[in-house]
């Protein structure tokens, strides 16, 4: 078996300081294999976003062990209106990760950006546009391309489709699934929506109150949920469908 992409052992995390210090993660353990997509499901405040931030190295107050197999994991944010710099063109936004990675040659950067466009379903005509001139789906494609272009293999997806309407959701989920196969990516997929997780992930962990209460294959969790919280989540998601 390969070395896991993420191995988290007995991870706890706190926000705040002194008397306001509040525990947001309690003894969380999980592993993510290379090429795997793991869904983290829970309502807001369950600690799922904090878990993602820990993996990205954005949380300081933690205890436990955390091994991440990618030196620079990236994140795709929920709101494609906020995750792209409104003052810049798509071309600039896609070149910037390469600039940060030390690719000095402009022609080389442009070549790599142009090579990447078809992978995410964008065209060269989009490069000169600003984010405000793109649709929500196109923006999320740009955000995905920006996250991948440095060559990161571990991607945290923070509710990447919940700001999109249903047909676009399906398109973006398909794109994410294709990219995973083509580039051998590992996903940590944060969502409150079990139905969306079911489409993309093989395994799912259910979180509430900062703990993982249930973990397993999506089919098993869907068909035979054991924890009452999972049953509640499932019922809510089915009621919506």
């Amino acid at each position: 078996m390969d070395k896991p992409m993420v191995r988290i052992g007995h991870l706890s995390s706190w926000y705040g300081r002194g008397r306001d210090r509040r525990q947001v993660l309690r003894d969380v353990s999980l592993t993510l294999a290379p090429g795997e997509a793991l869904g983290i499901v829970g309502e807001s405040g369950s600690g799922k976003s904090t878990l993602a931030k820990c993996v990205l190295g954005m949380v300081a107050d933690v205890s436990g062990t955390l091994e991440v197999g990618d030196p620079r994991p990236q994140m795709v944010f929920q709101d494609p209106y906020g995750s792209l710099n409104p003052a810049k063109t798509v071309g600039w936004i896609l070149e910037e990760p390469l600039r940060a990675a030390g690719v000095r040659d402009r022609a080389e950067r442009r070549r790599r950006v142009r090579e990447f466009l078809p992978l995410v379903g964008l065209e060269e005509g989009h490069l000169a546009r600003k984010p405000a001139q793109l649709s929500g789906g196109q923006r999320q494609r740009v955000a995905i391309a920006a996250a991948l272009i440095q060559g990161s293999r571990l991607i945290v997806l923070d509710e990447p489709v919940s700001a999109l309407d249903v047909t676009l959701q399906a398109q973006i989920l398909q794109l994410l699934a294709d990219l995973k196969e083509e580039l051998g990516l590992s996903y940590l997929f944060i969502s409150h929506d079990l139905a969306v997780v079911y489409q993309l992930c093989g395994r799912v962990a259910v979180m509430t109150g900062g703990e993982i209460v249930e973990e397993g294959d999506v089919d098993q969790i869907y068909d035979h949920p054991r924890h009452p919280y999972t049953k509640k989540l499932l019922a809510a998601s089915l009621a919506l469908d």
Partner: peptide, 9 residues
Amino acid sequence: DFVKSARLM
């Protein structure tokens, strides 16, 4: 988010 994203990069 675009600032956070730049930091991650």
